[in-house]
Each structure stands twice: as C-alpha cells, then as structure tokens.
Amino acid sequence: MAEPALSIRGLTKVYGNGFEALKGIDLDVSQGDFFALLGPNGAGKSTTLGIVCSLVQKTAGQVKIFGIDIDRDFAKAKYHLGVVPQEFNFSQFEKVEDIILTQAGYYGMPMKEAKPRCERLLKDLGLWDKRNGAARMLSGGMKRRLMIARALIHRPRLLILDEPTAGVDIELRRSMWEYMRRINEEEGTSIILTTHYLEEAESLCRNIAIINRGEIIKNTSMRGLLTELDTETFLLDLAEPLDAAPQVEGFEVERVDAHQLALSVRKGTDLNDAFQQLTRQGVRVLSMRNRANRLEELFVSMTSPPDAVSGIDSATSTPAKETAS
C-alpha cells in the first residue's frame, strides 16, 4: 500500500505563552487526494501546515511526507512539498520571473530546466506578460497566482494551498479551481486546501478534516459528511411584505425582513406541505434559494460553541453568509 502523502501522528504545539494550538492531532492524506482542512480562525490549521512545511516548530508528534519522517530527513521531505501560504511572502521588489527562478534555484534546479518550466507555469497562470514587472505591481489575484507558480516550479507531489483564493474575484477564483483540479487529476499532485470559501472545498475536495480548538473533530469523505446534514435552510422571497413570521406546522420559519422568510427543512420532510400551508395563509412566494451552502451549515454547527449548537442562529450564520459566493 502506498505511503500517505501526509501522515500526522500525535502532533502537538504549545506556544511560548502556554497556548496549546494543537492537542495531539492525527491526520492522513492519501496520495492523489484533494483534501480540505477546515476550521474557524485560530483553530490550528495554519499551525498544522506551518509545522509540515517547517515554518513552525512542533512540540511533539510525528509528521511524515510520503513516508519520510521530517525529524529524520526534512530536506528530502521538502522536495515533495509545494506551499502557497495565506499571506504574500515574496519580495515585492523582485521581478515576477526572478521570484520563480530563484525558488527553483533554492531546490538546486538547473537554470536550463527551470526556465522552460517557469515559462509554462507563467503562461498557464496568465502571468507571462507580467514576467518582467516587479511583483508589487501585480493585482491581488495575480500575486496569488504568482505564489502558485512559485510553489509548483520544482514539481512537488504534495501541494499545500492555504486560502489560495482569498480576496480573489469570482471569475478568477473559478479559473483557479479549474487549474487546481487539473494539476490534481492530470499530474496526480496531492493537494491540501484550507479555505474560508466552503463552496470551494465542497466543489474541489474529496476528503475533509475539520479542526477546532486544536483537535480534529471530523475526518471523513466529503460525500459522507454531506449526508450527515439533516437540515437545510431556504430563503423565500415574498410577493407582499409580512409583519411577522407565519406559523408553518412541522417547519421552523424565521422572518428575515418584511420581504423574506428563512424556512428550515429537515431531511425527508415534504417541502410541498410547507408551500401549501403558506398558500393557505395567503403568503405568495416569488423565488427561493439556499441560505448557505450545505457544507457551510454543517461547518457552523460543528464548530460553534456548545451553547449555540441548538440551531444555526443569526449570529453564527452571518459570517457564513458573507463568505458564501
């Protein structure tokens, strides 16, 4: 059986101030997988990935990259690793092409091999025309693509994408998804993705782990996770304004504003029943849509503090709405 692309056992991180960021997590990412590592801010995602790519020192535990223990031969393990961090981490004053070729040099890649590879990546990522410009002149989306090109220059077998599409417009985000799918499917690159766009994780990833307060609280397939969802919330746009939410037996209805209702529907419930009840009360529905994507609802319910789990209250669903596209 092939070694996992990434294997983590008992990974612990305690920072100097005593904060325990990771509480002995275990995680496996198979070769060729497109894996989502999700969690709220401060949950331990970046600490985990930071340890994997040597930016953070672990307190205890074992990390193996394609079977190579980072404590034994980190240099060898690093050859298999490409990292796209959350924040821009290149010299803003360097030329685009120089940033990528310099990174190739750090991996000991000869220039005659690095140049054509760099050209291909820049063309694939739509940066070829910008190759001679200083990196600071690029737009936010271009800077993200530059970091992807840089991470791929040495042909890593495992690519870590830490919020790669943050601040990127929808059109560009979707073209980046296509590119990531392509390198995963055609080149067999294993990918670990962290993102706040849960639609992104749902669309791209086959497996998922959710981390919260330094612990893995879920580690399963994306399909398996989504089947656990037993409630969906729909937003109903109304023809006439309402002063109060109507009573709909068997459903939970919340008045969002005068022209909108939120209807929570449990798995297996007949939606027609809700519409019939609304029609009887003279409520006309013009259109409906999901309040948030399905994964987002699950995520919020899993990572909310215990006293907020009874339902997806308005306070916890607000940020989810903001991040949904």
Binding site: C53, S54, L55, F74, A75, K76, K78, Y79, L81, V83, P85, E87, F88, N89, F90, S91, Q92, T102, Q103, Y106, Y107, G108, R150
Partner: peptide, 18 residues
Amino acid sequence: FSNKFQRSVEEMMVSPMP
C-alpha cells in the same frame, strides 16, 4: 531583515536548502 519583514525568508525555509 527585509526578508523577515516581507516573509520572503519563508521561501528559503520551505526549501531543502541547508
């Protein structure tokens, strides 16, 4: 220090360079 400040020192740290 500029490399630290701009975090481009991470480019070197993630590479296998000793």
